[in-house]
Write a protein that binds this DNA or RNA. Structure first.
Lengths: 246, 246
DNA sequence: AGCCAACGTAAAGGTTGTGTAAAGGACTGC
DNA sequence: GCAGTCCTTTACACAACCTTTACGTTGGCT
């Protein structure tokens, strides 16, 4: 057999993002269907665990909305089995206050969770956040230039070194990752959420200032050699390394 | 469904790294195919042991992904037979917690193992690590300068001797290998994992401090004659012999 | 202007990786 | 069997690092 599939991502006209919802609440799935279809998503809903699992395993969907409380097969079980085969992003839907389910779910590899009842706007926002991050990750997995230059900053990824005006920076592993990310997306805003997940490997928590500290330290190290080269802050959005003229 | 695509990326027309996957889980092989082809690898999957063994023995592949649980012929058997003919790198795929399989597999000559379920990112990272190490080994097997000098260190590989400021060091075989590796890659970071596999001939285990001790001893011996010549530590990354000015 | 959430950052706290002495094994040659 | 050599493990100290805390500042909002 030929191992084949189309993985085109952004080819216009071709694809639409398909979302699968596994939830026994039929009324809710219909409501969600309306909103997501309005937003241009291809939407499919099933109401039972095993059926959903089969569909999800097919990799035909870019994202799965998974209810924890399911008749027949528990949502966490579905997630666990799905993860044997696929790393398709999963957004869990939980009853409010189900802290344990949330923790277990995230450990099993869910990408996010949302407590019921939720507003459609919130749902769409979460979906978009996950999809955007998945795209970032895929971008990261693709071959990237081993060296690039942004203004006075020079990246040498083979040596894992970044220099300012030819002065090599002494960066910790985390600082390096953050700065590399910013450089590879120079000119674009990189959200704190993305930076946290991609460089620190964890979701950004409320009152988590760790990332801010790393940025602060990176700035300090860059300023040793070049006062002009600045990481810009976009309040509420993220950070940005300006490309081109200062 | 459209037929598969080729995603040449490095040397067009020239060689592409070919990877063979032997796993009866068809859905999984398709998923892996997607990711690896995105990453520019030539990918082939077969679902039965004997068939995979034949293909692997052909030496047409630079790396084999081998599932332990196979119908017909057990993965470990495949590995054992493959090793009679080929030293092609093998990355084992095991069910989580199959500690025994892991140990046996590594003893049979697998290069690494990965517990299912794994994330595509992790898989790609492991594959790259193996291929990079294989390249390092091949590089080592090629004729290399029989003598080279790094700062105050002078290597005479014919005599298997390294001297500091013309004072020959009394090194053990292992110490010599480690220092030679560092010298031949002066200016680059050499990971502890690489050092362990290439100089000690074993994978680095958690809480394994053996390599640290060797480094410590080498440093002590060098310091007898030259306080300035230092093996630098890059926390979490490896060790580095600085090239050029101190 | 005044409020408040987001941000900057110094300092303190906690965690993890590394340095190294010393003890424990494994192996060799006698 | 014993001494010698070498590699590894154990144990503890320390340093580097990441995160949290705390407080000051900024900028958008009404």
């Amino acid at each position: 057999m030929a191992l084949s599939f189309t993985l085109a991502k952004k080819q216009p006209g071709a694809e639409m993002t398909s979302i699968l919802m596994i939830d026994d609440d039929v009324a809710l799935t219909q409501l969600v269907a309306e909103y997501l279809q309005l937003d241009g998503y291809q939407f499919t809903a099933v109401h039972q665990g095993p059926e959903g699992l089969e569909l999800a395993k097919s990799n035909a969907f870019q994202l799965v909305l998974l209810d924890i409380m399911l008749p027949g097969m528990d949502g966490l079980t579905v997630l666990k089995q799905l993860r044997q085969h696929s790393y398709c992003p999963v957004l869990m839907l939980t009853a409010r206050g189900d802290e344990i389910d949330r923790v277990v779910g995230l450990e099993l590899g869910a990408d996010d969770y949302l407590a019921k009842p939720f507003s459609p706007r919130e749902l769409v926002a979460r979906i978009k956040a996950i999809l955007r991050r998945v795209e970032l990750v895929q971008q990261q997995q693709q071959p990237q230039a081993s060296s690039l230059q942004v203004n006075q900053l020079k990246l040498d990824s083979a040596k894992r070194q970044i220099s300012v005006l030819d002065n090599p920076l002494v960066l910790t592993a985390t600082e390096y990752q953050i700065l590399e990310l910013l450089m590879r997306h120079a000119g674009d805003v990189v959200s704190k959420e993305d930076l946290s997940q991609l460089a620190l490997g964890k979701r950004l928590q409320l009152y988590d200032r760790s990332l801010d500290m790393h940025i602060s330290n990176i700035r300090k190290k860059i300023a040793q050699y070049d006062e002009g080269e600045k990481i810009q802050t976009l309040r509420g959005l993220g950070y940005l390394l300006l490309q081109g003229e200062n």
